[in-house]
Amino acid sequence: MKALICGIGGQDGAYLARHLLDKGYEVWGTSRDAQLATFDNLRRLGIRERVTTLSMATNDFRSVLQALTKSQPDEVYNLAGQTSVGLSFEQPTEALESIATATLNLLEVIRFLRAPIRFYQAGSSECFGDVGEIAATETTHFEPRSPYAVAKSTAHWLVVNYRDAYGLYACNGILFNHESALRPSRFVTRKIAQGAVRIARRATEKLVLGDLGIRRDWGWSPEYVDAMWRMLQLDKPQDFVIATGVSSSLQEFVAAAFAEVGLDWQAHVVQDAQFFRPTEIRHSRGDASKAHAHLGWKATMNMHDVARAMVRHELDPTLPL
């Protein structure tokens, strides 16, 4: 089996590449400019030399066609595009082009080639908006509250449309927040883990964060990429929510991270309104019962496990990833 991972340099792309290599796949991956990309995450996982990389501009139909024609994949995983909700407010056009237009191009190329390619689209819990205390399922209505979420919602319905209209094996994985030590520093969970360790090592700074009251369903990325793979092994394509089912506040995440280094977070953390988003989701929680029933998948790591693991990797970068 041969897989093409679009956005292989990111957290999920790197973990998925390792997961597929362990299963005996030939793995190809794309980046906007593969000759200049460092693929640091692949190197950190020790798999860089086992992956074939090529350049692909997802907003360019011809570029996508060339990449799929060259790689001849059995499975395509679209993990590329803008990944930051906050950044999407500053760069909304880039969000739409890199997520929605990119998904459309991939689907169109697969349809054009008439190849039996199975396609996975990285969806997002952000599409649901603020559902309150209710755990979102595959049938929960979308109410996106950011340009990122609007783009992900558009991509979701493109997948559904191409599946229904053209019979493509295409599915959406609606993943709730999932983290690891491979997260970039701009993500709040990595920022917290790094800040806690710096302060524990006697840095005199305060860790400045936004709204500590928001609640998220946090899981562990290596577990979530397994769910992606499982979705493409079914006889018929379906969409799935992937989540732990437990919602925790950002304050609880901060407390868990600082507790791991023996500190009281309240003495070292301050809130700043500049980090508040124009529209924010207060509560987010997913119900992955369908994934458990049809994929045999269930999260084993909760928020506290994730926070502790991220801090431990900051303390000792030699720990296995």
Rank of each mutant, 00 (worst) to 15 (best):
M1E: 15
L4I: 09
I5C: 10
G7I: 00
G7N: 00
G9K: 08
G13S: 02
L16G: 05
G24K: 12
G24F: 08
E26G: 13
R32Q: 06
T38F: 00
L42W: 03
R44F: 04
R44H: 08
R44P: 01
R48D: 06
L54W: 03
M56F: 00
N59S: 09
D60Y: 08
S84N: 06
P92R: 06
A95R: 04
E97D: 10
S98H: 03
A102K: 07
T103G: 00
N105L: 08
L106I: 14
E108Q: 13
E108S: 11
I117V: 15
F119T: 10
Q121P: 00
G123A: 07
F128D: 01
D130N: 14
I134Q: 15
S146E: 10
P147V: 06
S153Y: 02
S153W: 02
N161T: 14
D164T: 12
Y169S: 05
Y169I: 05
N177H: 13
E179I: 08
S185K: 10
R201W: 01
R201Y: 02
K206N: 09
V208R: 14
I214H: 05
R216V: 06
P222C: 08
D226F: 06
A227W: 07
Q233I: 01
P237W: 13
A243Y: 03
A243C: 04
V246N: 13
Q251E: 11
A259R: 09
A267K: 12
H268V: 03
R277A: 12
H283N: 13
A291E: 07
H292T: 12
N302Y: 03
A307S: 05
A307W: 01
R312L: 14
R312S: 08
E314M: 07
D316A: 11
